[in-house]
Amino acid sequence: MRIITVLHEQGPMNRTNLATAIGLSYDRAMKYLAWMSSRELIIIDDNGYVRLTRKDEETYTTLVQWVINYVSRLRFPRRLTRNRR
């Protein structure tokens, strides 16, 4: 989700800057990017710049809408306090 969000908000960026922006080591980020690329969610150009595909832009919109519809409606109970004697 962080990869999608960063690319959606900041646009295409090189792999090193993307890894830094999402808070992962370069090697770990490259594994996620390879997985996303194999599913045509991102494109990595010849210069090493990563951008979202149209498919991933739609995924981002769907995820955000899901969060708004379901997560924002969650109500968490107040913290229970213990009676002190």
Rank of each mutant, 00 (worst) to 15 (best):
N47P: 01
L7W: 08
E40S: 15
I42Y: 05
Q10P: 03
N14W: 06
G48N: 01
S25A: 11
K55H: 12
V6R: 12
E40A: 10
Y32N: 05
T20E: 11
I42P: 04
E57P: 01
R51K: 15
M30H: 01
I42W: 01
E57M: 14
T61I: 13
E9Y: 07
T20S: 06
T61S: 14
L7T: 07
D56A: 15
G23F: 00
N14T: 00
T5V: 13
Y32E: 08
D27V: 05
E57K: 14
I43A: 09
K55S: 11
Y26V: 00
T53H: 03
T16H: 06
D56Y: 12
W35Q: 12
D27C: 00
R51N: 09
L24C: 03
A19I: 06
A29N: 03
I42S: 04
Q10K: 12
L63C: 08
A21E: 08
Q10V: 02
T5G: 05
V50Y: 06
L63P: 05
A19E: 04
L24V: 09
T61G: 07
T53D: 05
W35P: 00
Y32S: 08
E40D: 15
E9I: 10
Y49L: 11
Y60A: 11
M13Y: 02
E58I: 10
K55L: 13
T59Q: 06
D45K: 02
Y49G: 00
L52K: 12
P12E: 09
G48Y: 06
G23W: 03
I43G: 01
A21I: 00
R28K: 06
D27M: 02
N47T: 06
M1A: 13
R15G: 08
Q10F: 07
H8D: 10
A34K: 13
E9H: 08
G11V: 01
K31L: 11
